[in-house]
Write a protein that binds this DNA or RNA. Structure first.
Lengths: 235, 235
DNA sequence: CCAAAAGTGTTTGCTCTACACCCATGG
DNA sequence: CCATGGGTGTAGAGCAAACACTTTTGG
């Protein structure tokens, strides 16, 4: 009976140049570090036999929690403020992994504000726009698609978008973030009313000057209740 | 570096005697079967040093998927029709497990109709009402609480309740199921209108006679879209 | 014919949506 | 004073909630 290996994979979202992007690493790199050797080899899916890209990941060490492992997997790419992390799904089909053993991957998604990225991006790997991903290893394309669905869904009933912005932000910036992720224009007045009624952000006394009238800055209320109640099918 | 073991745990819900119930097994039993020996020993939480109960679970074998492992874990307790299974969350704190090694548990929840249970319940273990659970091993109480939250939430935006009923059922029976799980009375006319508008169940030509006027029977439409759209925070 | 459960519409209030103009600052 | 983005309210439509009586069968 061969053993089963566990790693975490993280779909790290960030916004730059008005595009929602995902962090990818070349398939070989993070795997070489693994104590069991290369266990997540590319298995078809790439267009021309070339290099496939992978989601950043990390084997789970015996003394760390899954959440910690996910944090560590993104740590090299994120600066001061901690990324928002949420467990997504665990992929464990018997076909996953390679000769080194079967692999179960606990997938997370992360939201990191652009300013918190290490300058110029990670040493290896890069930020790819969601529409324009390279060939991906194994089932990673499906994992990204699922993460995007969850992210969009999350935005519809919560105010999670601010996790992609600096600590203080204007409502226009927040709306812009939502529009990029949801891929549609939103009404300014309705957006403002609803996001404020949700009560998860509150105004600061600061304003930001730039072009035009200065914008009031807002920040997250850590004491807020996180989620707006979804439409109930029954009363 | 010690290895990490993986199992699945399943929160199996069923309704009997007008109560929502969860299947539990005595802590020792299923663990003895594990190739690595007892790795999920009771760790505090039980009231009087007595036996703690556990969620049914099963180690993940090298050749089966996580979903299959979850199916197998409930298979001894369920009859013909397959239980509805959904992956819930993966618990992987470093404190989990025991001397045999660290344990990562992929939790599922299952809905099984009362008629599909093996008569008289499983040979060992039992169906406990949610309000009246015995002392539970490890973090299992928290897992059950989370499963219940997910189940209630699911009912609010889907018609998942029929998974706890026989293949054909009346709308009154379905409403009764919802009331038991949500813990509140529902309006009969609104319930019927909404559940039918959702389009996931449809009438059959059969009726069931009993006390009073016979009820039209309904069944699930397997081709239906599964989920009603949640209230969008933004247009 | 009586008891028991099934079945059926309408009105009211609220929430969502669409929509256009004035404000404050920097250059 | 002009260009730029920030900020604000309301009317109409669609959806959800509350509510009571008639119908069908078995005993």
């Amino acid at each position: 009976m061969s053993s089963i290996l566990i790693n975490v994979l993280v779909v790290v979202f960030s916004i730059s140049e008005d595009k929602l992007r995902v962090l990818l690493t070349p398939s070989q790199l993070p795997l070489a570090e693994h104590p069991f050797g290369t266990f997540s080899r590319t298995m078809g899916g790439e267009k021309e036999g070339g290099e496939a890209w992978s989601l950043p990941g990390e084997p789970v060490r015996a003394d760390e929690s899954l959440d910690d492992a996910a944090s560590h997997a993104v740590a090299p790419h994120v600066d001061r403020r901690q990324a928002y992390l949420e467990q997504l799904y665990t992929y464990g089909g018997p076909e996953r992994g390679g000769p080194g053993g079967r692999l179960v991957s606990v997938a997370y998604f992360a939201l990191v504000p652009a300013h918190a990225l290490t300058q110029g991006g990670p040493p290896e790997g890069g930020w790819f726009p969601l529409h324009g991903l390279p060939a991906l290893a194994e089932d990673h394309a499906g994992i990204i698609a699922y993460a995007l669905r969850r992210l969009r869904y999350k935005l519809e009933y919560s105010a999670a978008g601010f996790q992609l912005l600096p600590e203080e932000f204007s409502l226009s910036e927040l709306q812009h973030t939502y529009e990029i992720i949801l891929g549609e224009k939103l009404d300014k007045r309705n957006f403002r009313r609803r996001i404020l009624e949700a009560g998860v952000i509150e105004p600061t006394s600061r304003r930001r000057s730039g072009e035009g009238r200065p914008a009031r800055l807002y920040h997250y209320r850590p004491d807020a209740v996180a989620e707006i109640r979804a439409r109930r099918l029954f009363p």
